[in-house]
Nucleic acid binder design. Sequence first.
DNA 1: CTGAAAGCGCTTACAG
DNA 2: CTGAAAGCGCTTACAG
Lengths: 353, 353
Amino acid sequence: MSVGRPPATMTEIAAALGVSSATVSNALSGKGRVSAELSAKIRQAAEELGYVPSHAARALRTGRTGVIGLVLPDISNPLFPQIAQAIEQAAAAAGYGVLIADSRGETAQQTAAIGRLIERGVDGMIVVPRRGSRIGDIGTPVAIIDSPSTPGNTVSSDHWEGGMQMGRHFASLGHDKVLLIAQSRESNVQNDRIGGLKAGLGDDICCETLWVEDLEASQGAGSAFGLADRVADGFTGFAAVYDLLALRALTELQRDGIDVPLQASVSGFDDLVWSSVVIPSITTLRQNLSTIAECAVEALGHAIADSETLSGTSIAGRPNCERVPMMLVARHSTGPASGSVVSASVNARKDSG
Amino acid sequence: MSVGRPPATMTEIAAALGVSSATVSNALSGKGRVSAELSAKIRQAAEELGYVPSHAARALRTGRTGVIGLVLPDISNPLFPQIAQAIEQAAAAAGYGVLIADSRGETAQQTAAIGRLIERGVDGMIVVPRRGSRIGDIGTPVAIIDSPSTPGNTVSSDHWEGGMQMGRHFASLGHDKVLLIAQSRESNVQNDRIGGLKAGLGDDICCETLWVEDLEASQGAGSAFGLADRVADGFTGFAAVYDLLALRALTELQRDGIDVPLQASVSGFDDLVWSSVVIPSITTLRQNLSTIAECAVEALGHAIADSETLSGTSIAGRPNCERVPMMLVARHSTGPASGSVVSASVNARKDSG
DNA sequence: CTGAAAGCGCTTACAG
DNA sequence: CTGAAAGCGCTTACAG
């Protein structure tokens, strides 16, 4: 593509070759029946003249923009950028552009964001809903990334199974008392993870769940979790429901003079940057975001196709995407007995799942 | 907007009212001279019929899509989501949609990302360049967010001045030996921050810079920074050039039994989530991202307007945007002498700046 | 102040 | 296999 010259149009190619623009269109799209020779000549001319398709014209004519929207809740959850990146990749591969919309704050913002995208003419959208919000029929194809236990969910990681992996990991390391740390009882994702963790730990391990939400409500935000007391009570495992909580737990333990990993193990979920940056680095569970993104884009593509055939909206739904497996990333894997069980692999308890 | 009925067009409004579509267009855009009464009637009809403008048609006709591109480098830098959010806000307020493109990996990806956006017909784009890359004339209006010392920079925080604030903060707390922790010598942003830190600390305070890059080259990634030794050497201040490094420093110190903030102070830059989540929370410098975003969008808007008048590209450039101030967020502000100087405010040394 | 007309660049039946 | 024609919905000179 030479800089400076404006991009050529189909009409110009047609004029240069003495053919009709319909033929140019057919040759370039490969749809109409155009002879191989002419087709080749046209393709070459397009190349030489620096043809760039006009998305606007195509959109006006076909009613499809080739753009999908991505609605993300408050950015304060540091996982979302990675989702955005994965979606952008998958969308680009499928020929879609991605228009972003942020729905931080109230649920009303989410509705507004969706409205803006519709006005811009997106062919469909992928939404990661705000906690506790339901995305109804919005008159446009939608794919939803939330949790398998959410009604209307299109694609998500298998948070429950992930929790189970982590629970088994703790079990295999020989922990007897494990504290589960979560933040919101309203979060489907967190509830799934907690459920899985309990199942993975099994009946022989004592576990208790600390809901930070309650803690902050009663003592004000920013209060410590009181983990040192738990260690005194015999807890050696601390399994947080996402990495930020794990980070909080780790630093609080360290601050209070508890040696991690010698006296306690800490784990999180999502494998965000700092899980591996912190010393000691923490064990976590990585989501397969590229698969999730691909599933979402594919499902949305189908929904878009369907919405043309059928009349109205269609919620995307495909098999094999509702429970994308997560991957355990074991980092400081020391058990309670000063590191003697370090390399034990995942224990195959059969009492659950 | 009633669901189910397809959005009305200008032509339909015109038909319903028995006027021409040109008049409808003029009334709705407020450009042409249309009588107040007719104008009101048209606006009302538009409302009732559920008029939604066709961006595609407008784009085809005017040659402008009302969409700008946002090119971001590797997401692994957790500041970028916040930038993205701020840009989306500012762009929406200015009537633009935001198409994202990710340029992780090689510089070639950045070029490819820019190309994709141009093909999609964006009116212009905002790019946060990859370290060490230069954005030349790309035939489309561009605004660049980097650092004041980068040639071609459009808008950025005043990283140098921010560094100076932080340096003075350490000075005011009475530290004698401060270790500066940075990662890449190629980063303009990091160099600016280091320069400012040194100036803010002044000549009386001993400071040294640890380049982690060198460390990893010689000892492999993931190696400890050896900060405990520094404490033994009398260092009490640890000023990292971004929060992730600060986090690493904090946990390493704590792991090695150093009490923060009693024996050492740790600070970062950017005020990312975890700076306030960690215990103890760390002092940092917050960028004014909404101002930066607004400046970038405004500058880009001017560049887009110019590019229609003049012939070719124009690089955005506006006053007052090249050095947006940063804000100190003091958290654990203890000096080296076991907390006696906790609440000292910023020291007004005059030996620099 | 209002309208008729052209045209942005493409695609899609429909003829030939 | 190829072309002429219409039209997607808007905006913009230009007449009236």
